Simulated scan of single mutants.
Amino acid sequence: MRLMLAQTDPVHADVAANLDALDGLCQQAVAAGAQLLALPELALTGYNVFERLDELADEGELIDQVARLAHQYRLHLLFGLAQRQADGRLTNSAVLIDDAGTTLACYHKRQLWDREHQYFIPGDELCVVDTRLGRLGLMICYDNEFPEIARALAQAGAEVILSPTANMVPNAERQQLQIRARALDNQRFVACINRAGIEGELHYCGNSLVAGPDGEVLGRLGNDAGVLVVDIEHSRIDESRSHQDYLKDLRALPGGNT
């Protein structure tokens, strides 16, 4: 699988402008031979839009517009957005659409951070989905900091874990450490798609990266907006596990927890 991470600096609260930018990113992805284009957390509105979430939250139309792009460019697309649920409450979600324009998954962030508790409800479900690119697991930002989530995704069969993120200065090195640890501990690929730029008092740290099953960094961006293309070779998972297989060797802890 050829994966493109788009470390964007979205136009604050301007969905139309960010959709136009996504069209251009799709063209870049096609030119690079990518099969999956992944964007950051709340990629089409910006992250620091809490007071405007009622007007910016998607009720389906935005997903439909992105699905048309996925179908047009024959790309799998992953992106973050605020999503209004049937009961009117909001979730911080990551949506995966395949290259036919079909929505494969909507994952709702489990671990809410800071002000997010005031505006979003947390998700309860893990998300692992079978695709023709492999078995993909989804996390979002603060989820990265809880090793239990990546472990549960790996135990559910995820081969590649993707995490749209909006992480801030000064957390670039901490982010790299956590993503590499999630990959190494579970012998899986883990990709963190962070954003760049400044929104009000929030200064994002970029440094999106992909880590391989042995914890090595396969690619990493700097602070500024840009794209990163990485080839994911699924056979490397079995190669890593041929030396030691952490999930197979893991013994249950007292009480039945692993």
Rank of each mutant, 00 (worst) to 15 (best):
Y204E: 02
Q244D: 10
L53W: 11
V227R: 04
A211W: 00
R68E: 15
D143S: 11
V30E: 13
G219C: 01
P147M: 14
G46A: 07
A158N: 11
A150F: 08
H108L: 01
R115A: 09
C192F: 00
A166F: 10
V15R: 12
I161L: 15
P170A: 13
M4G: 02
M168F: 14
C127Y: 08
A29H: 12
A31P: 03
N171C: 11
R174T: 12
T102E: 12
H12T: 03
N144S: 14
L81C: 13
A105Q: 14
D58N: 15
A152G: 09
S163Y: 08
I97R: 03
E61G: 14
N194S: 00
D185A: 11
G226W: 01
L162A: 07
V160D: 03
I198H: 08
Q118F: 06
R89H: 11
I97N: 04
R89I: 03
S93M: 00
Q111P: 01
G88P: 06
K109H: 11
L209W: 00
G134R: 05
R2N: 10
K109S: 02
C127K: 06
R84G: 09
S240R: 09
L39I: 06
D98W: 03
L126P: 05
L221H: 06
A6G: 05
L78N: 03
V217N: 02
E55F: 07
A31N: 09
I179E: 01
P147Q: 14
Q7R: 07
L133E: 05
Q28A: 13
D185S: 08
E148M: 15
R2G: 02
L78S: 05
P10Q: 05
L44T: 09
L112C: 01
V66M: 04
L202Q: 07
G24Q: 13
D20R: 13
A166W: 07
M168I: 15
F79T: 04
G219V: 02
N18D: 09
L228G: 03
D130F: 03
G46Q: 10
D249Q: 15
L53K: 12
N207V: 00
T165D: 15
L19Y: 10
I232H: 00
R180S: 10
D9K: 06
Q244Y: 15
F146C: 13
H234C: 00
L37G: 08
S242W: 05
L19N: 07
D231F: 04
E51I: 02
T258C: 14
Q175C: 06
L90H: 04
A172W: 09
D245F: 12
Q72P: 04
E41F: 13
A150T: 11
A17C: 10
R236K: 10
A86L: 13
L56S: 10
L19D: 08
I161F: 09
N223W: 04
E159D: 12
E239A: 11
D64K: 14
V210Y: 02
D130V: 08
Y246N: 08
I140C: 14
L5E: 06
N257A: 15
L153C: 09
V227E: 09
G219H: 05
H117V: 08
G255T: 07
R151T: 12
I140D: 13
H203D: 04
Q111F: 03
N18S: 10
E148P: 04
L162C: 12
Q35L: 09
G46I: 05
